[in-house]
């Protein structure tokens, strides 16, 4: 198990290198001059040249990439923002907890409700509840986050005055973003739970359990759900990764200062160090979550545990 984790952690190295290289190439090819954006259009050629020299932007691509990797590895330094002059690490340290809280809240809500709905749908297949839930699940997958977000704001903030429409400081401010961000995952988890449960419910050992007179709730929770969990966990893990990376839409609609917005603002102003930092963090988070999901498998499914030993 430890060896398995170590091996997975080691894959972080090529992943990070790959992501940063790709990102460097993309930023390199993106038109727009950071010097001109920071110093403004009035800046003289001399001032621009001075800025580019100071930040190494006049160097060839490979030198810039090499320096970046060297500084990151040897000095654990991914640079300072061109605009705020703060270290990228502290910029991200401010924004990451926000995105994490947003994503964790959303995935928690999606998992809880998704599994409950999914189980009910599977147990009462083709009932009215099942049909209605499936229609909503379809709508949930099809509705973009920003659109749902605006609808929620219109209803709960503008008309009913129940909840604030933006920010992420107070509990009340967190409810709408969580709902908006979780809708797609909620729908997917509901559908996954339903289909996975339907498969299991028809197995012989469920029939055996029923035949021996076991209570229905115990059958559903202990026998069926535990066996249906693996695909559900997988989808939850994938969804969580998506939420972390894709929270930018919710962050924009609800004016939440998370990593996604940090990255988008930085891209707009060509603040390269911040873009690099934000993307690396999101990539690392994605990989780590996948690792966590793999570890969860072995905890849930004893068969896998023996295989890794």
């Amino acid at each position: 198990m430890v060896r398995f984790c170590l091996r997975r952690l080691l894959t972080l190295i090529p992943v990070t290198l790959g992501v940063t290289f790709l990102l460097f190439s993309l930023l390199y090819m993106t038109p727009g001059d950071p010097a001109l954006l920071v110093l403004g259009p009035e800046a003289t050629e001399d001032a621009l040249r001075e800025f580019r020299r100071e930040h190494g932007l006049d160097q060839p691509f490979l030198v810039r990439y090499g320096r970046f990797v060297y500084n990151a590895v040897v000095h654990q330094d991914v640079g300072r923002s061109y605009i705020t002059h703060r270290t990228v690490a502290s910029e991200i340290a401010d924004a990451f907890p926000v995105t994490l809280t947003l994503s964790i809240g959303a995935i928690f809500f999606a998992t809880l409700m998704g599994m409950i709905f999914g189980i009910i749908c599977a147990v009462k297949q083709y009932s009215i509840f099942d049909n209605v839930a499936m229609v909503f699940a379809m709508l949930g997958i099809a509705t973009p986050v920003f659109y749902l977000g605006i609808l929620l704001i219109l209803l709960f903030s503008v008309h009913l005055h129940w909840l604030p429409s933006s920010g992420f400081d107070t509990p009340a401010q967190r409810i709408l973003p969580w709902i908006a961000l979780s809708s797609v995952s909620l729908s997917i988890i509901t559908r996954m739970t339903r289909s996975s449960m339907l498969e299991v419910i028809r197995s012989d050992y469920i029939r055996t359990a029923r035949a021996k007179g076991q209570k229905e709730t115990v059958i559903i929770v202990k026998h069926a759900l535990r066996n249906a969990l693996i695909p559900i966990i997988t989808i939850i893990g994938i969804q969580f990764g998506h939420l972390l990376g894709g929270s930018i839409l919710a962050e924009s609609v609800f004016s939440i200062p998370g990593v996604g917005r940090l990255a988008v603002d930085a891209i707009k102003s060509r603040d390269y160090p911040v873009v690099q930092g934000a993307v690396i963090y999101l990539a690392l988070a994605y990989v780590l979550i996948n690792l966590l999901v793999d570890i969860l498998y072995t905890w849930i499914d004893p068969r896998l545990r023996t295989r890794y030993r």
Binding site: I153, S157, V158, H161, P164, G167, S252, R261
Partner: peptide, 18 residues
């Protein structure tokens, strides 16, 4: 000073009194 990137959000915040 609070930031609302979306112009519509600013209007809504004004209407809701925050």
């Amino acid at each position: 000073f609070r930031t609302f990137l979306e112009a519509t959000s600013r209007t809504i915040e004004l209407e809701s009194g925050s």
